[in-house]
C-alpha cells in the first residue's frame, strides 16, 4: 500500500494531499488539511459530530475514505461563512443567537446537517427539522434551542 497524492476540493479550493488508501476523511480534514472544525466522536456512524457536506448531502466523514472523495465537493464547517468577508452564515448566527451552543462539540455537525436541510427544504416543519437532525447527538442535550435556531433561520430568510 503506497501513499498517494490526491486532490480534494474542500470548501471550494483544490487541495493536494498525500494520503494512504486507508485514511479516513475526518482524519485527513483535521490532521492534513488542518481544518479542525470537523469533530470526531464515536467513529461508528452514531453521533454525527463528524458530519460534512459532500456534493450537497450531509454525510459522515468517520465512515468515508478520503481517497474516495476525489472529484467531489466537500464542505466543512469552515466553508459556510462568507468567503470574502468572513461573516458567519445565517445558520451559524442563529445558533449563537438562540443559545444553541453549549460545549460546542456537536455544533459543527448540527450546523452542517441544518445547512444541508435548509438548502434542500428552505421551509421545513418542526418535525422535518427533528428528523433531519436525528443523526446528530448533543450530549449537552440542548436540543430545543437547536430546533428553535433552525426554525428561526428558516423564517428569517434561510442559509443562502
Amino acid at each position: 500500500m503506497k501513499n498517494q497524492l490526491i486532490t480534494l476540493n474542500i470548501n471550494g479550493e483544490d487541495m493536494d494531499l498525500v494520503v494512504a488508501p486507508t485514511d479516513l476523511l475526518v482524519e485527513v480534514l483535521r490532521k492534513k488539511a488542518h481544518l479542525t472544525g470537523t469533530k470526531k466522536g464515536c467513529g461508528q456512524g452514531d453521533c454525527g459530530a463528524c458530519t460534512v457536506i459532500i456534493d450537497g448531502k450531509a454525510v459522515l466523514s468517520c465512515l468515508t475514505l478520503a481517497i474516495a472523495c476525489q472529484g467531489k465537493k466537500i464542505t466543512t464547517i469552515e466553508g459556510i461563512a462568507d468567503r470574502k468577508t468572513g461573516e458567519m452564515n445565517p445558520i451559524q448566527k442563529a445558533f449563537l443567537n438562540h443559545g444553541a451552543v453549549q460545549c460546542g462539540y456537536c455544533t459543527p455537525g448540527m450546523i452542517l446537517s441544518s445547512y444541508a436541510l435548509l438548502c434542500e427544504n428552505p421551509h421545513p416543519t418542526r418535525q422535518e427539522i427533528r428528523r433531519a437532525l436525528s443523526g446528530n447527538l448533543c450530549r449537552c442535550t440542548g436540543y430545543i434551542l437547536i430546533l428553535d435556531a433552525v426554525e428561526a433561520c428558516a423564517a428569517e430568510g434561510g442559509v443562502l
Binding site: G45, G48, K57, A58, V59, S113, S134, G135, N136
Partner: peptide
C-alpha cells in the same frame, strides 16, 4: 435505516 447521514451514504 439509521439516521439521515447514514441514509445519504
Amino acid at each position: 435505516i439509521g439516521g439521515p447521514q447514514v441514509r445519504e451514504m
